Amino acid sequence: MDITKKLYLLVFILLTALGVFVYNQPNALVSPDDDELRAARINQAVKRVISGREEEKHNSFFNQVPDMRVTDKYRAAKEEEKKFNVKRRKDAQKINVDLGKEDAESELQARNERIKNVQQTLSKLHEESLPPLPEGFFSATARPYVMYREYTPLTDDFKALVLKMHSSLLKNVTPFSVLTEVKRILLMVFRTKSSYTSYSGRPDWSGGAANISAQYIYLMENRNFKSNFMHELTHIYFDGFFEPSSAPSWLSEGFAVYVQSLYQSPAENEWLNVFGLKFAREEYIDFEEFTNVPSLSGYEKDDVAMWYAQAYSVVKFLFERYGKDDFYQFSKNLKDGMPLGRAMFRSYGMPLNSAAALESAWQSNLRKQINRGK
């Protein structure tokens, strides 16, 4: 091949290679207009990126504000919980409990409920009004008493006497004195029979009376004042134990006379011994009538005395023959609504399972006492 043909071939190869290169690199050769367009597009893209980042940053900041508030509330709630737990531990120590977390919370909840009930009771008590002071009466307070006394000022000696008798009685009416809630006792002391009967509504033979639900005591101020006070105060605790129901009349009055007799001299109790002899000779009120008497208002004075003495004698038999624990259980059974026979049997066992059985056992015990010279 001559040199001319070789040169033509070399030029052809170079042009072909240049065409292939240009075809594969379209952006390598651009016009000034295309370069400006490309730069403008790049700038727009950069602006969009920057704007997007700023917006994202802006949104991110404001989206964090609620989260920050929630965090503050959470911290405050945790702080309150911490304070509460510290107080709860101190309260648990005060009530001397060694319980698990759930039991401690239950105990504290029950304690708070008891406090709430006490506060409601005190509030209710505060709202309750006493009867107005009658004309001619003096008044004074000596917790738990509010005292009204006719014609005579309430001296410190008188108040001390009442509180001393009150304290002494509590030991003899346990557990009734423990279980009966005493809020405030109104003690009204009368010097004249007319004012006593008209105010209390009691008959002439009465020397004292008690309003159990209101916890009022009405007393004549005479030589029987102390013993009558013990009698009526026993009603406050013993009959209060049965609230909102009521104790059988013979049991209520019998126990009140029995406690009263503990504070009287042998001479003052002689009338009870006289009736005891009659009872041993089977001179007593029919037991069916005795255990079911609704009221003594229709009784003559002598019949009232016999009924009270019989109630005393029967209760004395139960209390001293079987003990105070069984007597309490018997009273509780009656409070729970048991009939007389079942209440006795559950407390004392055989043979005491009916009023007739009680009558027979009581009579047998009286005869034994007479034979022993008591």
Rank of each mutant, 00 (worst) to 15 (best):
L154C: 11
Q215C: 02
K183Q: 15
F190C: 00
Y199W: 15
L170P: 00
T174E: 13
S168Y: 02
R202V: 13
P131F: 11
K116W: 05
H126Q: 12
K94W: 14
E128Y: 09
T180S: 10
R184I: 08
H126N: 09
F190V: 03
K116M: 06
A92R: 06
G201H: 02
K193W: 07
G136E: 02
L99A: 03
S206T: 03
K90Q: 12
H166N: 13
D156W: 01
S195E: 14
V146Y: 10
D204R: 01
V182T: 13
G207A: 01
T192I: 03
R89W: 08
V173L: 05
E127S: 10
L130R: 10
K87Q: 15
V86T: 15
F190Y: 15
K226Q: 14
L161R: 13
S213E: 15
K101L: 11
M220W: 07
F137D: 03
P203V: 00
E102M: 03
Y148M: 08
Y148E: 06
G100D: 05
T141I: 08
R184P: 09
E127K: 13
N117M: 08
Y148D: 07
L99M: 04
V146T: 15
K94C: 11
Q93C: 06
Q119T: 08
Y145M: 15
K87M: 14
A160R: 13
G136I: 00
L122D: 08
I115C: 03
S168L: 08
L170T: 08
F138S: 05
M220F: 02
N112L: 14
L130S: 05
V118E: 11
A209F: 07
T180Y: 11
E150W: 00
I115G: 04
R111H: 11
S106E: 08
D204T: 05
Q215H: 03
